[in-house]
Computed example of a mutant assay.
Amino acid sequence: MLHLRAVCPPEATAQALDVLRAHAGTAHLIAHRGVAVEPPGDLVEADIAREAADEIVDALCGLGLDHTGGITLEALDTALSDAADRAEGAAPGEGADVVLRRGDLLRRASAALGVGFPLAMVVKLGGALLVRATGVFGEEAFQLERNHDVDFVFSVGVPSLVVAMLAGAAGMLAMSSAKSAALVGQWSRCLQSAGQLLVNLLGIVAAAAIVLTLRRNGQRSRVGTRPLSRG
């Protein structure tokens, strides 16, 4: 669930309340009249299902609240009520740990991979050629057949997949937990290095998908078995 706060000019408050009442993904709707100081107006609060966030925010922006007032969203760690359970169950689609639409997220991730990795490889190659031209580390540093410390860069195998899956799991846990963390020559080697990159990417994506699925199933099971008071 997400907690929504909308600062509304008095003339738009009734419409904002109608939008929230009409959406099945809304719970715990509250209106504070005349409490907003700057910009002046009313404050409307509600808890909304993540699946409903896009539609609700779009509707409120359609009332101009992003210009005449303000809209904020924050994640709720815990929401214990029948109303919240009904809102999550009735909201269309599936929840995610971000409000962004999946299609938009996929496009951005693809662009980051398609542009970021090749750019990083080009920069790295340029640095290597510059270092070799200046002879800072000597010619021996570029003789790969004698330097086995860098074999992991182009040797594709099970350890590569294991490392990639661990990186993907760590990255997805960091994202889904809302915590930041630090995550940790010879032209014939280029194709082998590209294979290593492909294995790493596949492992990261697979591990991230597995972690996200397990976390989502765990959250759903906890919500479904939560005892509520009968009073």
Rank of each mutant, 00 (worst) to 15 (best):
L201K: 12
M1Q: 13
L80A: 01
A16R: 12
C61R: 13
L76Y: 10
A6D: 03
A87I: 07
S193D: 02
D18A: 15
V163L: 09
E94H: 15
L73P: 02
D42H: 04
S160R: 01
S221R: 15
L202D: 08
A120W: 05
E45L: 05
A31Y: 05
S193F: 01
V7C: 09
G62K: 13
T72S: 08
H148I: 06
A169I: 02
L106Q: 12
V57I: 10
E55I: 05
A206W: 01
H28R: 15
L119N: 13
V35T: 15
A182F: 01
V99N: 11
G34L: 01
T26F: 03
C8Q: 06
A169K: 04
V163H: 13
W187D: 01
A53Y: 00
R50A: 07
L161D: 07
I56R: 05
M165V: 01
M1N: 08
E140T: 10
G157F: 06
I71R: 01
A194F: 08
P40C: 04
V199W: 07
P10D: 07
F117L: 15
L65Q: 03
L198N: 09
T78F: 01
M172C: 10
R215Y: 08
R107E: 15
V44W: 00
Q143K: 08
V44K: 00
R215H: 09
D54E: 09
D47M: 03
L125R: 13
D85M: 14
L80W: 08
R220S: 03
G138M: 02
D77T: 14
E139T: 10
D66V: 02
A174N: 01
D58L: 14
V99E: 07
T134S: 14
V150R: 10
V156P: 11
Q192L: 01
A209N: 11
A169G: 03
R222T: 04
L183R: 03
A170N: 08
V163A: 05
R216L: 14
V158M: 05
A112G: 12
R226H: 15
L119I: 14
A112W: 08
Q186C: 05
I48Q: 06
R21Y: 08
L228R: 12
V131G: 07
G157N: 07
L130H: 11
A167K: 08
M1L: 14
H32R: 09
V223W: 13
A79I: 06
T78Y: 02
V153F: 15
G69K: 12
H32E: 13
A174M: 06
V158Y: 06
D77N: 12
E88N: 15
A207P: 05
L212E: 14
S81K: 10
L214H: 04
R146M: 04
R215M: 13
G185M: 02
